[in-house]
Design a protein around this nucleic acid. Sequence first.
DNA 1: ATTGCTGAATGG
Length: 342
Amino acid sequence: MAGFSELSDSELLQAEELREAEEPRSARDPDGAGKRKQAPRPLDRYALRYLCVTDLAGQSWCEQQAVFGMEEPRPPAPETAALLDAGKSIHLARELEVHDLVKIPTTSREDSWAIKILNLLSMIPVLQAVGHVRELPVFGVIEGVFVSGIIDELRYNTKGELELNELKTRSRPFMPGEAQRKKDHFQVSLYKYIFDTMVQGQLKPDVFTNHIHLRPEQPLGCQLRKHAQKIGFMITSFGDLLELMHLNLMFSDIPGIDCLKIEYSHQESSVPLGTEVVPYEEATVKEKAQYFLAYWKGQREARGVDIEEAWKCQSCSYSEICDWRKKRAEGLEKRSGPKKSK
DNA sequence: ATTGCTGAATGG
């Protein structure tokens, strides 16, 4: 509590958790009413109005796993959970080095989205003045799908370039394998893609109303308005904020990201393991995004990993219900040929 | 919509 009460001019707003009673998914459609004409696209089936950057990155690891994660979320295995927790607290500690967290009560969906947008807007002048921010939110539309994410760290380096830095902490003291690096490269490339389009002024107010179905006329909560005012935004409705956001991004004079870096470090010893400079290939990023989003738009079936990456299944909590894995095993059996002839 | 609708990322 005490840690969160200090206010500074660079603070991160946080939606105060208000959990409502959860409704089981099965109770939503008690079947029978509407006859199915066509299978809905996965986005609609899971009632997803947007995807996160890490959802797409997760697809790069194993698409089938990412899909299971949406249809029946399961907690990770205990030892993985410990790893994630360790990673989380390291990230939080780093975040607190640069700004405080402030809890803001919310009463509407517009309020919670307003918090994310205010966080973004409040970080732009800090980036320009201090030259360094952490946990910067990004929003954009890729292939017609709204995508949201948070950039770990953004700074102007000694060369004056705008540099993205993503910290990855590891349990074992060496660099990750190819599959993991590929996933991480895609993750940071997506951040750049979204960030660049955002500062080009492409994040228009109607993106939030059309894709997320937020109401511009919705008045923002009192505490939220007070806070917005403190960081220089006089707003009453959510639409006011959207207009301000668009103008701010258009005229903020922020360049695109020049340089993408991933820093791997050992969790226990915090020994740096290596830094990867990720070459940004826009065409490749677009292609991959298009391929992964095609699944969510119902344009193709989900795929699991190929036999070469079957080792991933060992750390997957869905391995025993995965048909892709089963079919792959069956196919392998067939191909292994007539070993025993009677 | 009758009603209702998600912090993202954490690591492998």
